[in-house]
């Protein structure tokens, strides 16, 4: 196994500087986002809603378009914004996670491959997409992918939201790749050696011994990235995909673009994202604590 360091035990009575324990899984996936989000108390949701809804009521009391009119407008458009808009955000987040996870797992396995010809490009692709601005990736994918593909006699249009899925899947893939790599190398080398000495092939070792052990460790950082991704889906409104932000703007235009509409509509978008991601973040942190205790 070329990928792992040789084990040498040279003992000494002198004080030694122990090797710095680099924990890639912890470093890369320290769940910053989920931790931050999970720290809100559930009550703060109502507080935020209250502030957002009450603020224009004071600020624009003298204008002739009243706050209650704005709320009525929001209420009228709610089924449209949620049923068509937010649902699409969720569809995009699911699809992106699916594509990103499959590609990311493959890429992560590539990163720990003993074959340099596989490991080096996998590392490069991972670093490239982890460190690129998401919006730039989205634009590139949007413009690079054809708007339709022809298979035989059939012409299949590629909807914008599907292209957005591929665009968002790139950074997700790269981050999942790091999660997988970090989890695999966090398994003690003794496990590899034990499997080696029992004549397991490398693939058998990976799938029967190593991956089952790190599967659980990958779940909290994976969920953390899901929450980040969901929060990032409004980015695709810049590409014209008809998700919640795009549809909110369309609704406001239909209501004559009263500036008083801005805060209720976008405030609602904020709240619905918070309400969706908050339980995920709480659950992520709970799982992480649970798994940490077990190990």
């Amino acid at each position: 196994m070329n990928a792992k360091p040789a084990l040498t035990t040279t003992n000494t009575d002198l004080a030694v500087l122990k090797p710095f324990k680099f924990s890639p899984a912890g470093q890369v996936n320290d769940l910053l986002f989920s931790r931050w989000l999970a720290e809100f108390s559930p009550r703060s949701l109502f507080l935020i809603a209250l502030i957002l809804l009450a603020w224009p009521g004071f600020a624009l009391a003298q204008s002739n378009y009243s706050f209650s009119q704005a709320l009525d407008a929001l209420w009228r458009w709610l089924p449209f914004i949620v049923g068509k808009g937010f649902v699409l955000n969720l569809v995009v987040s699911f699809m992106t996670m699916l594509v990103g996870t499959i590609a990311g797992v493959l890429l992560g396995l590539g990163q720990v491959s003993p074959a340099r010809a596989i490991a080096a490009p996998s590392w490069f692709i991972t670093q490239l997409f982890r460190n690129s601005p998401w919006l730039v990736l989205l634009f590139i994918v949007m413009l690079a992918l054809p708007f339709e593909i022809q298979i035989g006699d059939h012409i299949y249009p590629i909807p914008d939201w599907l292209k957005a899925v591929f665009g968002l899947a790139l950074p997700i893939m790269a981050n999942i790749s790091e999660i997988v790599r970090g989890a695999i190398i966090s398994v003690p080398t003794g496990q590899w050696e034990a499997a080696d000495s029992l004549a397991y092939s490398r693939n058998q070792t990976l799938w029967l011994v190593i991956l089952p052990q790190c599967f659980k460790r990958m779940i909290p950082p994976w969920m953390n990235w899901y929450a980040i991704l969901t929060m990032a889906t409004p980015l695709i409104s810049l590409l014209g995909v008809e998700e919640i932000v795009t549809l909110s703007r369309q609704a406001m235009e239909a209501e004559d673009n009263h500036p008083e509409l801005l805060v209720p509509f976008f405030g609602f978008a904020l709240i619905i994202f918070f309400a969706y991601c908050y339980p995920i973040a709480r659950y992520t942190i709970r799982l992480e604590k649970k798994f940490a205790v077990r190990q």
Binding site: Q191, A194, D196, L198, A199, V209, P212, Q213
Partner: peptide
């Protein structure tokens, strides 16, 4: 052929290295 060799040679380690799962 390391796999063939290791089928005939058993090894026990200081840290046991049992598969924890």
């Amino acid at each position: 052929d390391k796999l063939k060799l290791r089928k005939n040679v058993g090894m026990v380690f200081q840290q046991y290295n049992l598969f924890p799962h």
